[in-house]
């Protein structure tokens, strides 16, 4: 039975100029990188552009990848930067302050919180209400599966700040969804007292 080549083998071969290995590597990781771009950037076309830029950055910088970090972490960092660049390039920056309630818009009207979850409410619309400083750590944690230290390394911020931003980001998302359901479950979820724990 033929086994799939490990990432490390593909990376080494690609670094040595093996285009077939590079193509397999890009094909293997495209979907997860594109998913992160989509969650960070929002619109599908923008996510595709960001993902393409991320892939190009990966191949142009693959010679610098030394294996000290996981390829997953390293490539998420590149994808995250590409997504943020895309956001800024398109002039679609999110609200400057997470406390600015005027920036939160109505998303939909669904019976209650559980219904909202089970109905797969457009979490993307809710995510886009969050400033990127909160959105990106939540996406890297919940979609990318990175641990706090990896996210800290990816975003170049302290792990304590990562923990705080993830908590506040999830908290606000829960409130947004709760407000849609009208079940009165939203609460002051730490934004008032919230400060980054550096």
């Amino acid at each position: 039975m033929q086994t799939l080549a490990e990432d490390d083998d593909l990376i080494r071969a690609a670094q040595d100029g093996d285009m077939a290995s590079l193509e397999i590597l890009l094909d293997r990781h495209h979907d997860r990188l594109r998913a992160v771009c989509a969650r960070v950037v929002g619109r599908g076309a923008d996510a595709d552009d960001a993902c393409q830029q991320a892939l190009i950055s990966i191949v142009k910088n693959l010679d610098k990848f030394d294996g000290r970090a996981r390829f997953t972490t390293w490539s998420y960092r590149i994808a995250t930067n590409a997504a943020i660049d895309e956001l800024r390039r398109r002039g679609r920056r999110m609200a400057d302050s997470i406390d600015d309630e005027d920036n939160y818009t109505q998303l939909a009207s669904i019976g209650n919180f559980d219904d909202a979850v089970s109905a797969q409410i457009d979490v993307q619309a809710a995510l886009e209400q969050l400033p990127e400083e909160f959105r990106v750590p939540v996406v890297l944690r919940d979609l990318g599966g990175l641990d706090y230290d990896e996210i800290a390394e990816t975003l170049n911020i302290p792990p304590g700040t990562v923990r705080s931003r993830i908590a506040r980001g999830r908290s606000k998302l829960a409130d947004l969804i709760g407000s849609l359901s009208g079940d009165g479950n939203q609460r002051d979820s730490g934004f008032v007292q919230g400060t980054d724990h550096d």
Partner: peptide
Amino acid sequence: EQLRAVSELVGTSPAPA
């Protein structure tokens, strides 16, 4: 449970390219 549900929602893969 609300926070856990939010985490799972965000972790759901968006529509692919």
